[in-house]
Design a binder for these strands. Sequence first.
RNA 1: GGCGGCGUGGCCGAGCGGUUAGGCAGGGGCCUGCAAAGCCCCGUAGUCCGGUUCGACUCCGGACGCCGCCUCCA
Length: 463
Amino acid sequence: MLRLFDTVHGEIRPLVLREPGHLSMYVCGPTVYDLPHLGHGRFTLVWDVARRWFTFQGLTVRFVSNITDIDDNIIGRATREGTTESAVAGTYEDEWWKAMAAIGVARPDDVPHATAYVEGMVALIAQFLADDVAYVTSDGLYFDVRRVPDYGLLAGQPLESLRAGARIETNDEKRSPLDFALWKFAKPNEPFWPAPFGDGRPGWHTECVVMSLDLLGDGFDLHCGGFDLKFPHHENERAQAVAANRPFAQHWGHNGWVMVGDQKMSKSLGNFTSLTDMLERTDARAYRLLVLRSHYRSPIEVSPTTIADAERGLARLDALARRFNLPALAGSSFVRRDEFSFAGASQDLVNRVADVLDDDLNTPVAVAELFEALSIANALADGGDDDAAQSLAQTIAVLFASLGLAVDGAADVSDDDTQALVDARDEARGSKNWAEADRLRDVLVAEGWIVEDSPTGTLIRRP
RNA sequence: GGCGGCGUGGCCGAGCGGUUAGGCAGGGGCCUGCAAAGCCCCGUAGUCCGGUUCGACUCCGGACGCCGCCUCCA
């Protein structure tokens, strides 16, 4: 039984599926107007891990995540750069998928684009207008939040107290400060779509409700995103579904953010590191391991120190993979529990890991279990119990793969000259010519290799 | 102002009312021709003040500090 924290109820609850064995989940995706930053990396990793784990446990998961390809920021960038909105969106969507591939985040089953759903949004807004849930102002159409009696459910507070805290309102045409734009009328030279109530473009909150319901249907299972989307974005999606009389997400999941020092990383604070930059100097798997080592609802500290820490841990996993010749299992495809058979200590490990992951995706405890098992596997091999060690090591690789982390025991390729040095060193060692063997090792080290002795001779790899 | 979260050892980061989290870094040892990798052992905790309890890092209350949402934001 899978359990997951649900924001509406504020507690961990069973994930009740609309259709047993099938999980429908929607994750709010990026607005493509700039390079993805570490915060995007975190939310995509968190929900990729969830998707993979649910799949491992036997569920058929339909994973939908959108691309917002029309928005004020995109228009702003296109104007500044003298190009078109679709060019900006195209450029940064490409960057997005490149970064996703690099961190091993699997492609969603469906990737709806906002611009492909405008017709559906127009229809919904027209219905709101007819029902007097929407109203027209000089710059667009707004949603009247007072028409939704339980507005504020996801925020955990009623409309009145939200309103009390609302900051200075610049638009006094709005009926309530919390009313949000459904549709923005096009200003000169802005892109627009035709609509009976005036040409323009959709507001951000409307696209996700239309796309999620269109692809996943009424009452889909799980809707996810960063904590900062809880309110107002997710609340506004939900409010529209309520107003449209459509059952919406049954379970809401929100992940914690990336901290820089003691501040949230965000675009508006300007304190972000782009994912693209980080990947240039880090093994992407280290970021996944870093994410796995804290709970998905907690903030994580991403700094050169914490990344280096994760890289060292990763090196131990790779050393295990080398020692036991483990296959790299994770990648674009998923692993499933029923593809493997486990016994003895391996079965116990799977059970322990499954217990904690099934309970609100407790990845830090799962990782702790796996590192403990890693020591045991090495100790078994040191003691000559090769079969037990191999089985346990294999299971560790499978379980990490179930979370999308590929252990990598592959030797780094070297050229013929390097191989000649390796061969010469083995020869020198064979004849106990230690001085020559050490000299050759120094040469290899000077060329940037890590040199290790093994029963089969000299092994070299890159740091 | 409203709502929510957090404060753990040098750093990161969990669980748990009493029994080892885990990782990284550090110290000692084993293995190794020497290293590396690996294994074993070790230390340093729970912001502060009260309360409940036989016993609290873990529950309750308070204080202090920090963060976030209420505005675009993953």
